[in-house]
Structures are given as structure tokens and as C-alpha cells.
Design a protein around this nucleic acid. Sequence first.
DNA 1: CTGTTAGCGCATTCAT
DNA 2: ATGAATGCGCTAACAG
Lengths: 339, 339
Amino acid sequence: MITIYDIAEKAGVSAMTVSRVINNTGRISEETRKRVRKVMEELHYIPNALARSLVSQKTNLLSLLITDITNPFYTTLARGAEDAAKKAGYRLLFANSDEDYVKEKDYVDMILSTRVDGVLFAPAGDRSLENLQQLQKHQIPFVVLDREIPGIDADVVLGDSKEGARNLVEHLFALGHQRIALVNGSLDVSTARLRYTGYSEALRLNSLTVDDSLVIHLGFRDFHDDSALDELLALEDPPTAIFAANNMLALGVIQSLRKRGLQVPGDISVVCFDDFGPAGAINPFLTVAAQPAYQFGQLGMQLLIDRIEGNASNESRRIMLPSELIIRSSTQSISTPVS
Amino acid sequence: MITIYDIAEKAGVSAMTVSRVINNTGRISEETRKRVRKVMEELHYIPNALARSLVSQKTNLLSLLITDITNPFYTTLARGAEDAAKKAGYRLLFANSDEDYVKEKDYVDMILSTRVDGVLFAPAGDRSLENLQQLQKHQIPFVVLDREIPGIDADVVLGDSKEGARNLVEHLFALGHQRIALVNGSLDVSTARLRYTGYSEALRLNSLTVDDSLVIHLGFRDFHDDSALDELLALEDPPTAIFAANNMLALGVIQSLRKRGLQVPGDISVVCFDDFGPAGAINPFLTVAAQPAYQFGQLGMQLLIDRIEGNASNESRRIMLPSELIIRSSTQSISTPVS
DNA sequence: CTGTTAGCGCATTCAT
DNA sequence: ATGAATGCGCTAACAG
């Protein structure tokens, strides 16, 4: 490996002079600067970021911790984060927690030992508290994405889950649906709680109350066990519409419904939070509350970099992004017979 | 920041003993080991990977360079790569080249200065040669993914583009299509060339020759300029089917067709390479040659780690993964009237 | 079983 | 305008 000492020797200067040339710091005569530059090129010299970071206590490394890169929402978010990071000269370390606190903790440990300059953190849920506190204890700046964690005071970028849920349910009401099931994520996730709140508020505004038998709580990530769906469908007065709390749940719901020979929206309407990215554009089907995923990543990254570089005040900032109701063909009026 | 010296002092031993405890190396009496461990916990000590790497010349960092994380093929590939990396104790640095050689070069420079242990490299195209050679010059192990680069001898994981293309075109023949257009990626990408070859072979096997006016070459990533499509449709004898060389192109093609009031498959059938990941599962529509994206990442990562850890022979390995023809509703028999 | 010395590649501080 | 000494946090090599 070529070091500044190799360059120094061949250029007939000291290592310090080479360092100064690299960093454009201090005063160097144009002549030596050129000579050093030339030798650096000849030897294909590349500065060792490791050594540099060890001295400067800055790695220019940021970590993006999300729950699943396979979910289009996070994919697009990641893209926004990466673009913003690159623009500011940071590299991105990548991690999927799979909505699993233990994996998340493992990654936090990795992050800590890697001495990243900051973390963009989409937590698995409330119990991510410890992991976040771990970061705080070690003074690693971070920004929380998508899910709010009780007990943590930090910059955060959120979607408006309550309003999005309300819009979705109101849309179903407008189509005549009254028996609306909620297939929710786990209640230790703030978005699941807020979507439930939005759901029940919409019911109340329409003079209905929540029927607990219509509400089921699963994980946000998958829908392996669809027996809960069977119970829903076996009710005396089964739902005519289902509100899935995110895109992955909707996917599971629809596949399970079809497996049982039910048509969407013919037999039952389905709506959900989060869209499906570019992939969903081919044959847009689901009526969704679409969140601006790219901006989640981009804005979050900006907040993070601001803070790292000292351009942020002490108080935490909180960005709330609206979702957009996109009505497509997974919902239809309840009075319309199956065509 | 807590260092081994802090631990050493408080535990009444030397720094070296602390180091040995951390690494489980050398002989340490059970007693001091416990004492050191206790102090480490009390002080919330976390080893500094930077310093460690500087000494060991190993970062346990790997880089995944792809063209676009927004494309479901690469998303799933990334997931496979990450899972395999994590299992082996490596962290993943992330980069999108956007099919752009300059961005790719920027990232290669970053990678070099970061001293990663290896790179999983999905190149933008033939001109990635220089970037790959740059890695070779600096002795960074890498594995090439998805696209073969003439002039580079390295481990590589490829899909069988020729056969996949042939299957797709044969499927169209079976449905009675004879005028089949190819909307291809740029010809400086190996997969585009091979998909063209597969296309023309299938034609030849059916006693047809390639009609150049039916073949257009764009970038793999987007379909901004759909004027080429107009020329295709304005032909005296226009195509009854379109083979798009990847999923993103298919997306553009279909949207452009619809903008022009054409139905798929009613007016024109469409097939493409690559599926759409979980997102595509809601409403599977396109007939595709699906590649095993997760395995691309997972196997590629395994090859890479094998090589890094010296478990690979000198000769390069070459893995060719088949694609699976999945027939869905974007294709229909040419004799079938629009229903 | 444990400690001392030296050095990984670079940049800060102080000289000259 | 340039150089020498020192240290970032850690571990390999050697000593005891």
C-alpha cells in the first residue's frame, strides 16, 4: 500500500507537505505542489480514509437502518437518503432489521463500533427505545424515521398516519361500506396505533363504534398466518371492506382472499397505507394512502447532516408529511353488483 | 471516548491484556478476564473498529454497487447480498450508479479510500471496464453481477439472457405473433446484446429474419423519450407484440402504449425480462422471464467472501442462473379478438 | 499469564 | 514555506 511517506520520499519532501497538498491546507509553493501531485498520480496514491478518520474522529460514514429493503416504501426512502448523503459527501452503511429488535440491536452495536457520524433510524417499534438510547449514550446523532418512539426526543420525520387512515376509511364509507375490518400492524408501533385511531375516529364521525371482532393485529412485515382472516370472514356479519395498515399486509390480505375464492373488489374492497413504487405503476390496482417515501429519506438525511455539521439548533425538529389518497380499482361501491 | 487504556487503568492491568480479553486471544487467567470484562461493561466500552482495521488491514466492510435500488430486481438482489454478508460478519456499504459511468467511478474512488475488503459489482456496462481495472490495480477482490464485462477475468454471477429471451419470443410465436418488436437496453451492456441474440435466434428458428425497424435501443433505466415507440407504431406493418429487455423498460412501454389509447394485451402483447418483486405479486400482470434475484445477491456474496477469505482457487468462477418463464395476462393469442 | 515496545497511515502542533 | 515530533486506538512481536 502506498502511503504519504512513499510519496514524500519520491518527491523529496516530508510527509507533512504531502498531507498539506492532499488537504489543500497551509501554504505550499506552487512548484512543490505540482511535484507532489505528479508523484501521487504516478504511484496511484489513494488516501487511507481509515487513518484519516482515526485522527479526525470523523468517518464520513452514515448508517441507514430500516426494517426491510424489499418493501417499496423503504426502497424509495433509501434512494432519497442515498442521494442526499452522496450530495453531502457521505457514504451509506446499510442495514435491515426485519422488524426484529434483536437484529436491530446487533446492527446498532456494529454501527457503534464502526464509528459512523450519524444514523438514519427507522425503528422496529417502541422497544427500539433501548437501541436508540444506546446511540444517545454514545453521542451518535440520529434522526428517527416513520415511527415515533415514546421516550425519545430527537429529530423525526413522520407521515400523518391518523389523517391518512381517516381518509381511507371515509372513502370506504362514501362507497357505502359500514363493516370495515382493520388488519393492523403490531401495537408497539406508533403508526399502527395512529392508524387505529384514525380508523376509529372515522367510525365515530359516522356514528359507528369500533367492533373489536373486526380488528386484528399482526406484524407489519408479513401475513404468514392468515387464520385470523378466516375468523373475520366467518363472522355473522362479515366485513365488506378491509383496511390493511400497510402495503405488505395488503398484499397478504389480497392473496389470502383470492386463495379463498374471493374477488377484490367484487366480493370485498381493500385499501391500505403506502404505495408500491415504480413496480406498482404497471397495473395500479390498490386504493392507497400514498406516502412521499423519497422525501422521508431525503429530508431525514438533511436533518441528520444538518445536525452532524452543527447547523441545527438544540431543539428537535419534527416533520410531518401528508399522504395522498389515490383511488384505484380495489374498492367499489357496496351496492354495485359484481360485474 | 473510552479506550482500552481507560479499561486497563481501571482494571489494574495493561492495555494489552484488555486487548487479549476482547479478542479472546492468548492466555488470560479467568480472574483477570472477569475483572476486565466487568470494567468494560461499567464503562460501556465499544472497540474502535477504525483503529482495529488500521492495524489488521481488514475492515470487514464490503461494498455493493448496483445501478438502481429502486428496481425490484436489484432490491431483491441487495437483500440476498445483505443477508449473506451479515451471516459472515461483514457490513455493507451501499451505492447506486444510475447506469452512469461517472457516478460509478466516483463510487469506486470512495470504495478505494474506504479500504473495503471487497466489492459486489453490478456494472453499468462495458465501459465499467476501467472502473473494474481500477479495483484490480489496487487488489480489491470483486465479483461481477448480472452483466459480463469483456476484458475482465473475475468471478461472475449471470442470468441466462439468451435462453430467457428465446423463451419469451417463442411464447409469443406460440400465440401467433410474427411482428415482434424488441425494445432493448444499450448495446454496451452484455445482457442487451445477449437478449438481442436470443431474440434473433428465436426468429431464425421460426424462419424469420430480424427486421431492423422493429428493434430499438435505449438505456436500461428509463424510457423518457417514447418517440421511438411512435415510429414503431407508425410502421406499415406494425408489431403485434413487444419484447422489453427489462422490467423498467416494460413499465415505460406499457405506460406509453396506454397514453396512446392502446390496450395490453388487447391491441398489443408485451413481455419482458425480470419480475417485479413482492410489489408485483398483488396483481401479477406481465408475462416475464423471471430471474432469481435473491440468489444473484446471495451467491455473488458467497463467491466474494470465499475469495476474500482465501477459500477460492485462482481461476475465476462463473455461475449462470436460469430464468423462469411466467405466463400472465400481458400476452394473448393474436387471433383472439379483444374481449 | 502479563507487560513493553513499536507501528498501522495520517494530521495537529510547534519549530524553523 | 516546510519539517519533526507526537498521538489517534489498537494489536503483533517479543520479553519476562
